[in-house]
Design a protein around this nucleic acid. Structure first.
Lengths: 406, 406
DNA sequence: GTCTATTTGTAATGGCGAAAAACAAATTAG
DNA sequence: CTAATTTGTTTTTCGCCATTACAAATAGAC
């Protein structure tokens, strides 16, 4: 997880060394290949500003570490000796993403190119169950996915677990609070069957934002990713990097006060966004009580034209817009992304959101199109979890062990 | 101005070179001396992780560039050969800070140690005057300060102008909008008499935050600095670096909606914070109309126990607390700083602010003490403007020209 | 088919910067 | 006065990239 703004820790920073220079240049090569598709050594030199001999040396090392492979050269058609195409290895290092949701478990393995290669998803009512039991099942799902990945030649180099809860900025991977699961101070490492495969937990909204960032293209974008369903979380991505806050609590959008004297919230305050746009509040306002998946239920009723449902969604959209107006005025993002389960309700939620934002973001340029629905929807968090490992490897390939040459 | 989150610009980044390594290590040396006072070469080696020979070579270059000087060695009392003390040069490079306020102009020059050496301040009613006229007077004040600095052996290496307005993230130094001055799209460079001394404009709240950061001590702090008076701005400092937003509009706290259906605001929205905590709103609520400085007037009436004034300040404090609750839930800062002119009203404003924050920040640890008044008050912006140049030099001493050796 | 121009990748050499090792200088403790 | 200790510099070594030179592989011209 590459993150900005962590309280520096040691204070004294390591000096710039030749190894550090090498590390950065290795990363520049993997980064260029990741960003611009298959590239010859000369192309890489052009993109990075390094010389061809330097690139050759770096590429040798990266092939040795399993990060890159030489693929069949595409018929370029240009004059001169044809280059040998370099691509990210699709039969080497990989990332495992796991997800614990309120009603499901999921796993996903992506290769270095970022391509998902293995999928697993099972429905499970996880709310209120003992954390150890849920984690054991997640571990089993992950082990199952890893064995399938091994058959594809993939070697899992990192494991990240998406949870719908708060993960403080502290070593050791603690989930401080996951209200929708009923978790308090759960440390996945304490319940994981195999110490060798313990995943690092991370908030699902943050991981969804990472996935969106990757899908999106512009790697230096600044945006706010809203992950709305039972709880409403947001992730801040600043210049392409996740910002977790001083202690890891950034993005608690659900408890922004939207109507200061409004409905009381279990958190102790009044008029929090969750009281207007949270799943429970919307269902109540729509007069529905949920058998089955509440979001698809809402989508069906809205499509059928049910007045109470439409009213509830409009109110939720306006409340979201109001809260996000605060976010935009404070943070000045390039855009906003509506993710999580609510992405499926974007048809109904976006118009009131956009109207509210247009009315309240007036002291800076703003277009309604800056708010967009996520392209990944509910799969965002697992994908982000798997991708975060891949991203780390591309940003620092020296994490990979040098393979013993056969 | 060191800033995070700018849209990367070129996209392709320069490769890590040996010159880059050298630059980083030069900065590590100046940084260590700046942070830990006078240090011997061996001490610097200990702090940076560099070897003593490397430090010797770096120090030679830094002395040649005028960044460091060898001072009289303090009698250490320890066994062994005494070290020669290195300190930031107080007779060399310097930074000029200029400020255009609604009722004054100010200038300040600080040496590399960050010590203010020259002060200038004149009262001027700048609101509504032609920008060219105001800028010409500011330039004269700056030139006057620079000539005094020259007599002290100081060489101004950078100039920054604090303005109460929005400065977009764009080259060329444009002040897009400064409502309290009546400025629209003013480019200081177009009105500056001497092209050699054109300053870079920057928002005063951001500069105030920089000054606070420097004064504070922890160079990696994440905090929100509120600069409240006529307009209400905020600056976000993330991990010790200023965050200006995707386009430079971050921190528009004054237009956070605090009472969604409340009083209409000139910005077009309803219930913006400025309608409850802005200078004009507070004066109106207190039944005062301003001859003289409104903030000292408010302080006097509050000290005298005037009921309407106390009520107005309480309402303003609560509104500030409400808006900042959104900021805390979103950004998760270490703390909040009340700066600008309102720092002088902290006695009255802090209690309702803290109460509101305590009530609305419940899903993460929070203590009332995390809100503190600025130590610098109204001098923050000029100091920050002057310091920002010094900070840049310390972060990259190769900006300094190598002096011809005599 | 052969030759030339062009581009790619590698090999040889050089320079820069820090680490390592060795040493000279300046102090305190005995 | 000598030994121990710490500081700063000199010398050597090493790692990494740039430069230069060169071999390899293609398209186009004739």
């Amino acid at each position: 997880m590459t993150v900005i703004g962590r309280a520096g820790g040691s204070g004294e920073t390591a000096p710039a060394s030749q190894q550090g220079m090498r590390r950065k240049n290795l990363a520049a090569v993997t980064g260029a290949v990741a960003a611009h598709g298959p590239l010859s050594r000369a192309d890489v030199a052009g993109h990075t500003g390094l010389t061809r001999p330097a690139v050759s040396s770096l590429v040798d090392e990266l092939i040795g570490r399993g990060a890159l492979t030489e693929t069949a050269a595409p018929p370029s058609g240009r004059v001169g000796r044809p280059g040998r195409a370099l691509a990210l290895n699709d039969r080497g290092p990989a990332g495992l993403g796991l997800e614990i949701g309120v009603t499901h478990l999921a796993a996903c393995i992506v290769d270095l190119r970022g391509e998902p290669r293995v999928w697993r998803r099972v429905e499970r009512a996880n709310a209120g169950r003992p954390a150890g039991q849920v984690l054991a099942e997640a571990a089993a799902l992950g082990a199952d996915a890893e064995s399938e990945a091994a058959a594809l030649g993939l070697r899992v180099e990192g494991r990240v677990l998406a949870v719908p809860g708060v993960v403080p900025n502290a070593p050791g991977g603690l989930v401080a609070n996951a209200p929708n699961l009923g978790w308090q101070a759960v440390r996945p490492a304490d319940h994981w069957p195999d110490p060798a495969t313990v995943p690092e937990p991370e908030n699902e909204a943050n991981l969804g934002a990472l996935a969106e960032l990757r899908q999106q293209g512009d790697p230096a974008e600044t945006f706010v990713h809203v992950s709305a369903e039972a709880g409403i979380g947001a992730a801040l991505v600043i210049g392409g990097q996740l910002f977790r806050g001083a202690r890891g609590f950034a993005g608690e959008l659900g408890h922004l006060p939207v109507h200061p004297e409004g409905a009381p919230c279990p958190c102790g305050a009044r008029g929090c966004l969750e009281q207007y746009a949270g799943e429970a509040a919307v269902l109540r306002e729509a007069g529905l009580s949920g058998a089955g998946d509440p979001v698809t239920l809402l989508a069906e009723r809205a499509a059928a034209g049910d007045a109470a449902t439409l009213r509830a969604l409009d109110r939720a959209g306006r409340a979201l817009g109001l809260a996000l107006a605060s976010a935009v005025n404070l943070v000045d993002p390039d855009g906003l992304v509506l993710g999580g389960a609510y992405a499926e309700l974007a048809d109904r939620l976006l118009p009131p959101m956009r109207a509210e934002l247009a009315a309240r973001v007036t002291v800076r340029p703003w277009t309604p199109e800056a708010v967009r629905p996520s392209a990944l929807g509910r799969r965002g968090p697992v994908l982000g979890a798997a991708w975060s490992t891949v991203q780390q490897i591309i940003a620092d390939p020296t994490r990979l062990p040098v393979r013993p040459q056969r």
